[in-house]
Amino acid sequence: MTFTEILSSPFLTALVGKSLVVGVLVSLCASLLGVSLVLKRYSMIGDGLSHVGFFALALAAAAGVSGTHSLEASLPIVILAAVLILRLSRSDKINGDAACAIVSTGAVAIGTLINNLTGTGSSDVCSSLFGSASIVTLSEKDMVISIVLSAAVIVWYGIFARQIFAVTFDESFARSAGCPTERINLALAILTGVTIVLGMKMMGALMISALILFPPMTAMRLFGNFRSVVLSSAVISILCFLVGFFLACWFGLQTGATVVTINVLVFCLVSGVRAIRFKKV
């Protein structure tokens, strides 16, 4: 079967189309939020939240929430965790890094136990960790939720772009200039949680944070100003997703792993070219 045949088959178009829309939106959101997360040294939050996402899926399954509702069930749990992790990581009394790791590893452990107790099959566990093996698992409703939430992320980012820059670059100055830094940080954490939940089914809990890390890291090696980094991060993320997605369809690979691998390759390529050009990494 050729590419055009795959794409023209009406049944597949519907399935691929949904995954494609959700994937592109999640990649876009993750790359936008990722720039601030990486620069603020909050990468751990993204990683920690994806582990909590695994826990949330396990809990949803245990509570008898069927697969089609798992998205709505995980959202509040991950959002709560986002607020908690942000609080912990900014606390003076606790080592933020360690606090974040405690929440995430704890969530994985409890999630695994819940899976054991409810007798969740290892294939289900595998798919929540590594992403769905097929592209059939996304429902119409998943797509609608994804579109609405992604739109929220993009609108928020667009409206607060200048504040987001100010808070990312220098929180002390931003606060002295009357910028609502706490609210921006909170929104950043919550929207990261939302993005992770949206992308988790397709990408898998272990790999979703790659979408947050790689595009900004690549973009930072290409540009020296914030606006270009944000825009190129979004473009790189969407392109990597599209390439990875079609390769995965073509060769019957897992979408998440393929997309992340493409991201890794692009990052290495850009770093390599830069190293040769500037004789340093």
Binding site: L39, G158, A161, F165, F169, N225, F226
Partner: peptide
């Protein structure tokens, strides 16, 4: 954070004007 932050001199300097900007919905950088 600032030492390896990808921002242009212009972006940093103009961000000082943030508090003076008119309130209301604004799109972009």
């Amino acid at each position: 954070i600032q030492r390896d932050f990808p921002a242009s001199v212009w972006e940093v300097a103009v961000s000082g004007c943030l508090e003076r900007e008119r309130k209301g919905i604004h799109w972009g950088f």
